[in-house]
Design a protein around this nucleic acid. Sequence first.
DNA 1: GCAGAAGTTCGATGATCGTCGTACAATGAG
DNA 2: CTCATTGTACGACGATCATCGAACTTCTGC
Lengths: 107, 107
Amino acid sequence: MTLHHPTTEELELPTVLHALSDPQRLLIVRKLSAEPEPRACGAFDVNVSKSTCTHHFRVLREAGVIEQRRLGTARLNSLRRDDLDRRFPGLLDAVLASAAAESAAAV
Amino acid sequence: MTLHHPTTEELELPTVLHALSDPQRLLIVRKLSAEPEPRACGAFDVNVSKSTCTHHFRVLREAGVIEQRRLGTARLNSLRRDDLDRRFPGLLDAVLASAAAESAAAV
DNA sequence: GCAGAAGTTCGATGATCGTCGTACAATGAG
DNA sequence: CTCATTGTACGACGATCATCGAACTTCTGC
């Protein structure tokens, strides 16, 4: 099975915003942005089941937010930062900064 | 009936992103941002029914994106730009710029 | 007071969403 | 080859969503 990734031109703003509007997915994206290294799906301690995890990663991938590639039985996830920045300049940074500000304010 | 508006501190990022992830609502916000004057609900040529319109404006209001106040039988809508900027700096501008870039690219 | 305009409220409907468990496929280690 | 690991596929479930029409409320103008 080949994993479908939208091209940079195919990225749609409502789709991206919807992908980022779920707390679990937002958490995944934040963790992904915190380290430059791609991470396997299991490396996020999201407290949902495996199948739910697969679902969230697919939503993020099909929205064009992350890229997934195979490595053995694992799947390495990385943020499509450059593509997002080219298509929607400043958006990802604003969302990440807002998420950080929000979680800081929640303390 | 009093209209409930969340305070600046109550704004939640996933809620705001969700409110902006609908094409109709994104259009409303863009039109709202294009002019400084508050506008009545009917002043947006959104091609949905009146009740759907009410629904979208409520979602935007309860997410804290817009403010609604009465003026006769009409409801004046304005963008809560300052509150959003204080809570989520740069987010609204990035979304608006992205939406503009997207619609320009769609030509 | 009455008619019209502007929105709201109240179901209802079909679609999508987030979540789960179970069964399955692919890969690496022994 | 066998087995454990990693993730997917497939329903299924309740919840939420976007949409609608019909009836209602509130206000303005005449």
